[in-house]
Simulated scan of single mutants.
Amino acid sequence: MDLQALHDAVDAFFKEEEWNYEYVNERLLRFGMKGENLDVDAHMVLDEEDRELVMYSEFPVKVPPEKRGVIAELLTRINYVLRHGNFEMSFDEGDLYFRTGLDAADAEVTPTLVRNVVFRNFWMMDRYVPTIMSVLYGGISPKVVLEPSETMS
């Protein structure tokens, strides 16, 4: 799969959805979405060499240094039950993202596959924003804030 084929599938998806997006360069694009709990900024990396499409949605605030440990615990607990995608945080900067991706090696990337990556990503970020905010600003412990259905115990 070449870079042009990735571009074609991505462009077709955004045009079908009538969604604004912009290329920062040939391998990086930015876009956003309004969710139920927040407006999300996102970017997508198109990697021709590894034949991947990776999307990151950005949590709207940086996690302060004193909260990074407890947020890391929360993200680990959430990630444990996720089947697709994951939360990640930079311990140095406090940036928090949800990441989804598509391995396109030996496969044709279609607008439908791009749609699955994008909507899964936004849905998960939007779903867990109240949970993250409860731990970040409400002082609730990660173990307590997650519903029983969202834990393995």
Rank of each mutant, 00 (worst) to 15 (best):
D2R: 10
L3N: 08
L3F: 10
L3Y: 09
Q4D: 13
Q4G: 10
H7L: 04
V10D: 13
V10C: 11
A12Q: 09
F14Y: 10
E16T: 00
E16D: 07
E16K: 04
Y21Q: 05
Y21S: 05
Y21C: 06
E22M: 12
E22V: 11
E26G: 05
R27G: 03
M33P: 00
K34W: 05
E36K: 13
V40Y: 13
M44R: 05
V45L: 14
V45Y: 13
R51L: 02
R51H: 08
L53R: 01
V54L: 03
S57W: 01
S57Q: 06
P60S: 12
V63A: 08
P65A: 13
R68H: 03
G69Y: 06
G69S: 14
T76C: 12
T76R: 10
I78F: 00
N79A: 07
N79W: 03
Y80T: 01
S90T: 06
S90K: 12
E93I: 04
G94V: 11
D95F: 14
L102Y: 07
D103M: 06
D103I: 04
D106C: 02
V109L: 15
V109R: 04
V109M: 12
L113P: 00
R115L: 01
F119G: 00
R120S: 13
N121M: 03
F122C: 12
F122R: 08
W123K: 13
M124I: 13
M124H: 07
M125L: 15
M125C: 06
Y128I: 04
M133E: 14
V135S: 11
V135E: 08
V135P: 10
L136E: 12
G138L: 10
I140L: 15
I140F: 13
V145G: 02
E147V: 00
E147G: 00
S149I: 02
M152C: 01
